[in-house]
Simulated scan of single mutants.
Amino acid sequence: METIAVIDFETTGLSPHYGDRATEIAAILVRDGQIVGQYQNLMNAGVAIPGFITSFTGITTAMVRQAPPARQVMAEVADFVGDYPLVAHNASFDSKFWDAELARIGRARRQDFICSMLVARRVLPQAPNHKLGTLVEFAKLPVTGRYHRAQADAEMTAHLTLYLERELMRRFGLAAVSCRLLAKIQKTPANRLEHCVAGFGQRCA
């Protein structure tokens, strides 16, 4: 499979549209079933961290005050991932912060996002739910660190994405799984998964 960039943000809240900012980001490059590169940094956006966020993530205001400026971190991570397709668990959340933080430095996203949560809902409908922690336990994937920290969550999302690819290859006899197929699957009803994959048979071989 082509290279993908799996990302995860920690933030001060749920939406940049309400003034919330990113506090940490990690990006994991995955190629041919292997993690081939990593980037992680806390980022100082000049805002205080709410107490409930600290209790959730362990990230404190003092930690981000010692971190590089958000502008620097976003420029570095954007250069790191380049034009590779982006993957995130619950990508509707991460994509909003990616776009908003990039816009603050005068840059714009050129690639699409793939949501591993949406893909998992189609490929693993039997899972108890499709939260990252539940799927990691369900698929017996490695727990790489504390949940709700960017590095660990990005690594676990990368392992989950590779697991979903292997499951698709096993179930449908595919030689490989393309990003185009994953992007299509995330928009396909679970009961149409086989039809969706069949339409991409030659592209995935």
Rank of each mutant, 00 (worst) to 15 (best):
M63T: 06
T188L: 01
D112M: 12
R110A: 14
A5N: 06
A67E: 14
E10P: 14
R122S: 01
A48L: 10
V6N: 04
K140Q: 13
G19P: 12
T12V: 13
L174V: 08
A5R: 06
C196E: 02
S55D: 05
A27S: 12
A22N: 01
L102G: 06
Q111L: 10
L174K: 05
G106I: 11
A103M: 07
R71T: 14
A139Y: 05
G82W: 04
R170S: 13
H17G: 05
I28F: 05
P85A: 07
N90D: 14
G58N: 07
R21Y: 00
D94P: 00
N90E: 10
A127F: 00
C179H: 05
M169W: 09
I4P: 12
L135M: 11
L14V: 03
F52E: 11
K131V: 05
A27F: 01
L174M: 03
A62R: 15
S95G: 12
L86V: 14
S15R: 13
L102F: 06
K96Y: 09
G82K: 06
L118I: 06
T134A: 01
T188I: 03
K184S: 08
A120R: 01
T54P: 11
R203K: 14
Y39M: 07
A45M: 04
F113N: 05
R109F: 06
I25W: 10
A22W: 11
L141I: 04
I25D: 11
G106N: 07
E155C: 04
